[in-house]
């Protein structure tokens, strides 16, 4: 087990901003922070367990039919997440809508299975899945935070006890920049964030 497999997914090989995989849910569900967290949790679960199972089965799965095998394994875990979320978090389930079953075709999960889990040990694969999942969740939360604060002037979290689950930002919530919560704002923000990361990378290389 190597702790580096865990930390690389967080920043150095961040799936959203550096490898640019799994763009569809990244922009589709990030209108509210709570949806980003729900999607992130689903991806962490599916990615970790599919990585574990695939690396455990890597000697049994024949090479020529490996992609269909991976897809079936991933689809099974996604179905489990769908059922659990439907039962315990119906509001998040409804908000995620069609994007939840679409985790099956999320390139990150198949990509990690193909690029990492079928070559490495079970422990390393689990750490890789966990790290990549957390990196994905962090980027999603960042995008959702910016979009929700500017686009609606609120931060929506899970209601606990007397806390209603919504933080309202004075001033912005009365006159929000609506376009940020729509499609155009999401694409614009993604472009600007990617440019920022490209700038950081260029500066690092120049040194």
């Amino acid at each position: 087990m190597n702790i580096k497999e865990f930390t690389k997914g967080l920043f150095k090989e961040n799936p959203t901003f550096i490898i640019m995989l799994g763009m569809c849910p990244t922009l589709g569900v990030t209108t509210q922070v709570v949806n980003a967290l729900g999607m992130g949790a689903a991806v962490i679960f599916v990615l970790t367990f599919s990585n574990i199972l695939i690396s455990a089965l890597k000697k049994i799965i024949p090479d020529c039919v490996r992609i269909p095998c991976y897809i079936v394994v991933i689809a099974c875990f996604v179905s489990i997440v769908e059922m659990v979320m439907h039962a315990y978090l119906p509001s998040v389930f409804n908000a995620l809508g069609v994007y939840l079953p679409l985790v099956v075709v999320n390139c990150i999960i198949l990509g990690r299975a193909e690029a990492f889990a079928n070559k490495n040990s079970v422990g390393d694969s689990a750490l890789d899945g966990l790290g990549m999942g957390l990196g994905f969740t962090m980027s999603l939360t960042l995008i959702a935070l910016i979009r929700e604060v500017i686009g609606a002037g609120t931060i929506t979290l899970i209601p606990i006890g007397s806390f209603s689950g919504t933080i309202t930002i004075p001033g912005l919530s009365a006159n929000p920049v609506r376009v940020m919560s729509l499609a155009a704002g999401a694409l614009l923000l993604m472009g600007l964030l990617k440019a920022f990361f490209q700038y950081l990378q260029n500066r690092k290389e120049a040194r």
Binding site: G185, L188, M190, L192, K194, A195, Q198
Partner: peptide
């Protein structure tokens, strides 16, 4: 910094 993917996203926006 904007070459490639970032400018494509901004055009798409």
């Amino acid at each position: 910094s904007f070459q490639g993917v970032p400018i494509a996203f901004i055009s798409a926006s």
